[in-house]
């Protein structure tokens, strides 16, 4: 008994592949080019934004660039961007959660369907897909033609905030579906069955088991939609007409005009929201593997 236990222990102890590698050769050195790359092209560039944002043209320290966010135009652009991105994130969540549940229940043999909805549209350029929405939403566009045919009132949503929200939902919905789906497929079916065995009905099982367990995916999804929505300038340019200005448009314009310090200062304000999102993600991404994101 004792011997077989010992034997079992010995054979079951799986040495980590990594430890094996490192015993054989210094495999960790393989990460060196990557680490250098990330320092050079991620960390130092972000520090450059910090530097430009906190200095004026003569390299002296100032808070002036950041305080420009209080300017009514910039503040309005930030608040509108916040409002629209919160709306689009909520809509994405409401659309994506049921979809992720359905995809999880259909027990797909391969992930080809996921590829279909997420990767394939990217082969039609992102700008073109957004421009196509102009065609759909225009006064005499596809949508209104159909509504006319059905004798329904026409919709005039092109060049309104609603059109921008639609563009955001359209472009970023896949980034909400994927993290939620990734978490749902990992939920142990036995846990769900146990809840049912113990008398929970469908609703209770969902609220007490599935929803709490899927929370990390939901959080990742929210971040993956909120950040690009908050910072976009393309969607607002194409679907919002020239009158609606989001904070992304303001920053892009500052850089186009060569006001790098101002643009960087405003970017720093934006980065506060981004950093906040990243902090929340890292709190929920317990494995630290980023698997909830992609």
């Amino acid at each position: 008994m004792a011997v077989s236990d010992k034997f079992k222990q010995l054979t079951e102890k799986k040495p980590e592949i990594g430890l094996l590698f490192s015993r054989v050769n210094k495999v960790k050195w393989l990460s060196f080019p990557y680490i250098l790359w990330m320092i050079g092209f991620i960390l130092i560039p972000l520090i450059m934004i910090l530097y430009y944002g906190l200095t004026n043209g003569e390299n002296s320290f100032t808070f002036e660039n950041i305080s420009l966010i209080a300017n009514p135009v910039n503040r309005g652009a930030l608040l509108l961007a916040l409002e629209l991105s919160v709306f689009s994130t909520l809509i994405c969540l409401l659309l994506a959660y049921p979809l992720a549940i359905i995809l999880n229940n259909t027990k797909l043999k391969s992930n080809s369907f996921i590829v279909l909805i997420i990767i394939l549209p990217m082969w039609m350029n992102f700008l073109l897909r957004t421009i196509a929405w102009q065609n759909i939403l225009e006064r005499t566009g596809v949508l209104n033609t159909i509504l006319n045919f059905l004798h329904l009132p026409t919709l005039n949503i092109i060049n309104t905030p609603a059109a921008i929200i639609l563009g955001m939902v359209y472009n970023f919905l896949p980034f909400m579906v994927l993290p939620i789906y990734n978490v749902l497929i990992k939920i142990d079916k036995d846990v769900v069955n146990a809840a049912r065995d113990l008398g929970a009905n469908g609703g209770q099982t969902f609220l007490k088991i599935i929803l709490p367990l899927s929370l990390p995916g939901v959080i990742s999804g929210i971040t993956m939609v909120f950040v690009p929505s908050l910072t976009t300038f393309v969607i607002s340019t194409i679907l919002g007409g020239s009158k609606i200005v989001l904070i992304g448009n303001v920053i892009e314009q500052q850089f186009r005009l060569g006001n790098w310090n101002t643009g960087s200062g405003l970017s720093l304000v934006l980065m506060v929201f981004i950093l906040f999102s990243m902090a929340i993600i890292s709190k929920y991404d317990k494995e630290g593997e980023g698997s909830n994101i992609w």
Binding site: V227, S277, G290, I293
Partner: peptide, 11 residues
């Protein structure tokens, strides 16, 4: 590694 994925493209 997650920074470029989570960060805004514009930044």
């Amino acid at each position: 590694t997650n920074v470029p994925m989570l960060n805004a493209d514009i930044v």
